[in-house]
Amino acid sequence: MSLIISHLTVQVESKILLSNISFELKKGETVGLMGPNGSGKSSLALTLMGHPRYQITSGGIYLDRKDISKLPPDQRAKLGLFLGFQNPSALPGVNVRQLITSTHKSALSIKRQAQKLAKNLFLEQESTNRSLNLDFSGGEKKKMEVLQMDLLNPRYAILDEIDSGLDLDALRLISSSIKKSSAGILVITHYPRLLKLLSPNRILILKSGTIVKFASSDIISQLEKSGYSHI
């Protein structure tokens, strides 16, 4: 049971952003993805979820052995893939419960679950009734992504800078929430703090659209000291 990325090359408007990316994310494990700004981390996240702007020119994405690289995002989601967005879109007039209920029948159980999760994440109850991400603070947006992940219970989740803009308490809350998940998790971050809390099985370093290093989590402290330039 794993998400396998195999020799993936991706371009946007004939510019190659990712080349020959290969790695495996097993269900239940946590993998950190780090790299300098512009190295292609978010591009990879969006490609895996199926954003139409990112064209796969070669390679494949296999979710539990099924090639999903030609499927639209909704079908990838239905197979158990989740993306926690770095910049989630605002949805005027649509709250998180309506969003999740439109693909899951039981509105009542979603409501109960959402309220419970909101409480655990120290989100105001009202936030599950408000237009999603509209006038939300940075922290509320990130917590709401984690809340959706919990509601959807994916097999594999990509979390793109889920820690940016969070204070220390919020960081602890979401990381303990993420740790409870049984999904395979790819965590994209710039900061060692989240990785220390999540204790990932492995770290991948992405530079200029290529994976330059597979490392154990020991590399985190080295990166803190000397940055990416030596890798």
């Binding site: 995002p73 879109s89 007039g93």
Partner: peptide, 22 residues
Amino acid sequence: FYLMSRGLTEHQSETLIVNGFL
């Protein structure tokens, strides 16, 4: 894309956006 990543088809996504707007 955001809505579709949550499992909504393109049609469901547009309809939800329109209903939210209205």
